[in-house]
Design a protein around this nucleic acid. Structure first.
Lengths: 104, 104
DNA sequence: CAGTTATATAAGTAAATAGTTATATTAGTG
DNA sequence: CACTAATATAACTATTTACTTATATAACTG
C-alpha cells in the first residue's frame, strides 16, 4: 500500500499537462526527445526538463542509443497509476502525422 | 474517454497532499469541515479552501444539515480516478482516535 | 579535428499555489 | 435579540513551478 506522500508525488508529476501528454505518448512506444519535441508544441529544453522530472520521479526509463536518448514508461511497480495511464486518450493520430516527417 | 485537460485538472486537485488526505478520509465516510480540521493538522480556513477546490472540480459533494456542511466523494463519473482513490491508505485508525472526542 | 545533431543544464522570470490571519456569513440557542 | 458555533471569504505572503533564452556536453560524420 503506497503512502499519501508517494501517491501525491506521483500525481504531481502527472498533473502537469505537458508531462501527462508525454506519458500518453510513451504509452504507445518509446520515444527520443526530438520525437516528443516535434509532437508537443514547445521547446527542447522544456521537454528535457519535464523528462528529467518524470525520470527522477521514477515514472519513466531512459536509455541511450548512440546520439539518441530513448524514454519509455516505467509504471509497472505503481499499480495505483495503472488505470489513469491506461485511460489516457490515444495519441496515435498525432504520432502518425509525424511519421511522414520524422526528426531523424 | 476523458481529455488530457480533464485528467490533468483532476490530478492537479488530487496531487496536493492535504487534498489527497481529505479524499482518503472521505473514502471512509462523509464528514463535516470540523471533522476534517480535527483530523488533519491545519486551520479551518485552509481546509475550507481546499474543500472548495475539490467541490468546484467536481470531486466531492456538499450538503448542508443544519449548521454542519457534510462533504462526500463524488468520483463515480470519473473511472480513471477509481484505482488511485481506492488504493489510498486507510485512515480508519486516525478516524477512530478522533471518535473519542468528536468536534460536535 | 571541425561541424553538426541530439540532449542537458543554468539562470532568470512570471504565474500559480498553499498557507496564514482577519473578518464575514449562516444557523442554532438561551 | 444577543451569543456562540460552524463555515466561508478576503487579503496577503512565501514558495513552487513552468517556461524561456543562452550555453554546455556528448556523439556522430566528413
Amino acid at each position: 500500500m503506497p503512502t499519501i506522500d508517494e501517491v501525491s508525488d506521483s500525481l504531481k508529476l502527472l498533473s502537469d499537462k505537458t508531462r501527462l501528454t508525454i506519458m500518453a505518448l510513451l504509452r504507445h512506444k518509446e520515444m527520443c526527445v526530438c520525437d516528443i519535441v516535434d509532437l508537443l508544441n514547445t521547446t527542447q529544453p522544456n521537454i528535457s526538463q519535464h523528462l528529467k522530472k518524470l525520470r527522477t520521479g521514477g515514472l519513466i526509463n531512459e536509455t541511450r542509443r548512440s546520439q539518441w536518448i530513448y524514454y519509455s514508461l516505467n509504471v509497472d511497480d505503481k499499480p495505483y497509476l495503472k488505470q489513469v495511464i491506461d485511460q489516457l486518450p490515444s495519441m496515435q493520430d498525432q504520432i502518425n502525422e509525424l511519421k511522414s516527417q520524422g526528426c531523424n
